[in-house]
Computed example of a mutant assay.
Amino acid sequence: MKGKYDILLVDDDDVYLFVAKHIFKKLSENLNVESFTDGEQALNYFKDCVKYNHNTPDVLLLDINMPYLDGWGFLEEYEKLRPNLNEKINVYLVTSSDQECDRERAKKYDHLKNYILKPVSKDKLKHVLLEVYDDL
């Protein structure tokens, strides 16, 4: 990798956050991984990125089922912000839901890169990195 890359995890599962951060750290020291535990926190972060013209993460790994503002609610609000963001963000749904209705609903969002089932593994997260970064 040429530089430092930013990844944002949005999930209320502390174990998942710990494991994902650990895996990313092992995959590359050039990754900066931040996290929020609900969609509302993440949405406020992106609103601040627009307001203050801050850089956005390269990758967003988003859970569906969270308190306050779930992944679906986040995506609805994110759609409104997307045209005002400086950079393209690679958004992945990372969820334990294998329900067909959720997979179909995800297809509504053409900017979603993929739908990843938990549990996450080193191979799944490495695949995300390889999809996004061509210099990994």
Score class of each variant (00 low, 15 high):
residue 2 K to Q: 13
residue 6 D to W: 07
residue 6 D to K: 13
residue 6 D to H: 14
residue 7 I to R: 00
residue 8 L to C: 03
residue 9 L to Q: 02
residue 12 D to Q: 05
residue 17 L to C: 12
residue 19 V to I: 15
residue 21 K to Y: 10
residue 22 H to I: 05
residue 22 H to M: 09
residue 26 K to D: 08
residue 27 L to S: 11
residue 27 L to K: 11
residue 28 S to K: 10
residue 34 E to V: 15
residue 37 T to G: 12
residue 38 D to C: 14
residue 38 D to N: 15
residue 40 E to K: 15
residue 44 N to D: 14
residue 44 N to K: 15
residue 45 Y to N: 09
residue 47 K to D: 06
residue 49 C to S: 09
residue 50 V to W: 10
residue 51 K to V: 12
residue 54 H to R: 13
residue 56 T to V: 15
residue 56 T to I: 13
residue 57 P to M: 09
residue 57 P to K: 04
residue 58 D to P: 10
residue 61 L to F: 06
residue 65 N to Y: 13
residue 66 M to Y: 04
residue 69 L to M: 15
residue 71 G to V: 04
residue 72 W to R: 05
residue 73 G to V: 08
residue 74 F to N: 01
residue 75 L to D: 03
residue 75 L to V: 07
residue 76 E to Q: 15
residue 80 K to Q: 11
residue 82 R to S: 03
residue 83 P to M: 09
residue 91 V to R: 02
residue 91 V to P: 02
residue 92 Y to Q: 00
residue 92 Y to W: 03
residue 93 L to P: 02
residue 94 V to T: 06
residue 95 T to I: 07
residue 96 S to T: 11
residue 97 S to I: 03
residue 99 Q to M: 14
residue 101 C to L: 11
residue 103 R to Y: 03
residue 103 R to A: 05
residue 104 E to V: 10
residue 104 E to P: 04
residue 106 A to H: 00
residue 108 K to P: 06
residue 108 K to W: 07
residue 109 Y to I: 00
residue 112 L to S: 02
residue 112 L to C: 04
residue 115 Y to A: 04
residue 116 I to G: 04
residue 123 D to K: 07
residue 123 D to S: 08
residue 123 D to Y: 05
residue 124 K to C: 03
residue 124 K to M: 03
residue 126 K to M: 04
residue 127 H to F: 08
residue 130 L to E: 03
residue 131 E to D: 03
residue 131 E to V: 00
residue 133 Y to L: 00
residue 134 D to L: 01
residue 135 D to E: 01
residue 136 L to W: 01
residue 136 L to D: 00
residue 136 L to K: 00
